[in-house]
Amino acid sequence: MEARKVYVSGGSTYVISLPKKWVKKTNLKPGDSLMVTEHGSSLLIGTSAIEKESQTKEIKISQITSSEALERILIAFYLVGYDTIKIKVDRKDHLAYREIIRNIMDYLIGVEIVEDTNEAMTLEIMLDYKRMSTMQILQRMFSIDRSMLLDLGKALKNMDIGLAKDIIAREKEIDRLYFLVVRQLKSAVEYQQIAEKLGIKSQRDCLGYRIVVKVLERIADHIENIAKSYIRLFEIQKEAQLDEFIDITKDIVATFEKSVQALFTRNGEMAEIVFYELKKVEKSHSDISKRLFEIEDIQSAILEKTMLDSFGRIASYSGDIAEVAINMSTEVS
């Protein structure tokens, strides 16, 4: 950080000098325009280029230990913001690597294969920040999570295994949206102009959104876990009495809805109500937990305990969202 004196030019224009090192780094020349953005009591000065420069990464599969490692690397490059990823196919056992590259499009939004030859494959990430704001995607994730929870209650009530399997299938879309939001937030932290395009009012909100998107992804994971455990439970005990699980599902849905509404409206008072309602969920959780000790079949008890633990985690995540809502409703003066 450097201190700069303010000078008056022409009696009414206030002027400061720019750091020479920064001018050289950005290749700024006399006559160029700069973007000046007000940010509370601060000013953000940047070059006039609204879009960040396209970033390209080149990798060789001969330098990667396995096809699974390639998958993790490609996801990492997507998240940090690369726009083009060139993969050199320079080893004989390349088929598994090619399969990973093709499958990556199933859970990374905006990724397309633009080159596929004997020697190389190239991925291009084609995303328009204006068309998919961060808040819109978070709302979409909430909508999917909510529908999964509601249908979970229906599946338990009606002993509908088909619906339970459909719930499991929906979890993949949450993963796709999760990766997209993380990529957006990384760019928004670095580029104020991109943050504005994504509908993020303040870059400091990115930390809160990063917590929320992870919470929404984890909620979907736990709903999937409950559905899988229920399917296994149904196979060994088709007439399992799950009325208490159905009731706690309703309470968790209501608490989840309120926490997300508090976040989207930045309503700290509503967020406080969430913590009060969570006490009711905790009481139900405790009552069910005690009943599980009465189940004679050990495998059934274990599966119901697994389901109950996931319900507890979902409720806890609603509290995490409420905490973020309180933090974001408090403006820094």
Rank of each mutant, 00 (worst) to 15 (best):
E2S: 11
A3Q: 14
R4C: 10
K5W: 05
K5P: 05
K5S: 12
V6F: 06
I16Q: 07
K20L: 09
V23F: 05
V23G: 05
K24P: 01
P30L: 08
P30V: 06
G31A: 06
G31Q: 06
V36I: 10
T37S: 11
G40F: 04
G46C: 09
G46D: 14
S48R: 05
A49S: 12
I50D: 10
I50K: 13
K57S: 15
E58K: 13
I61E: 12
I61G: 10
T65F: 05
T65Y: 10
E68S: 14
L70P: 00
L70N: 05
L79I: 12
V80C: 03
V80W: 04
I85G: 06
A96R: 13
E99W: 08
E99S: 15
I101C: 08
I101W: 14
I101L: 08
N103I: 05
N103R: 12
I104F: 01
M105A: 15
D106K: 15
L108R: 00
V111I: 12
V111N: 07
I113D: 14
A120H: 06
T122A: 11
I125L: 02
I125Q: 03
Y129D: 15
L138C: 07
R140V: 05
R140S: 13
D151T: 06
L152W: 00
G153I: 03
A155C: 09
M159L: 08
M159Q: 12
L163E: 10
D166H: 11
I168G: 02
A169T: 11
E171G: 06
Y178R: 01
L180S: 04
V181C: 03
R183S: 02
S187Y: 06
V189D: 12
Y191S: 13
Q193M: 10
A195S: 11
E196K: 07
K201M: 07
K201W: 08
C206R: 00
L216R: 01
I219S: 04
D221F: 02
D221N: 08
H222F: 08
K228N: 11
Y230Q: 07
R232E: 15
Q237K: 15
Q237D: 13
A240R: 02
L242W: 09
L242K: 01
D247N: 14
I248C: 03
T249I: 07
T249W: 00
K250A: 14
E257V: 07
K258M: 13
K258F: 05
S259Y: 04
V260H: 13
V260E: 13
V260I: 14
R266P: 05
R266C: 03
R266V: 03
G268I: 04
G268N: 05
V274K: 02
F275R: 00
Y276W: 07
E277C: 02
L278G: 04
S286F: 04
D287V: 09
K290S: 13
R291S: 13
L292Y: 00
F293R: 06
F293S: 14
F293W: 04
I295T: 05
I298D: 09
S300N: 00
L308A: 07
L308P: 04
S310I: 09
R313V: 12
A315M: 02
Y317R: 03
G319P: 03
N327D: 13
M328L: 15
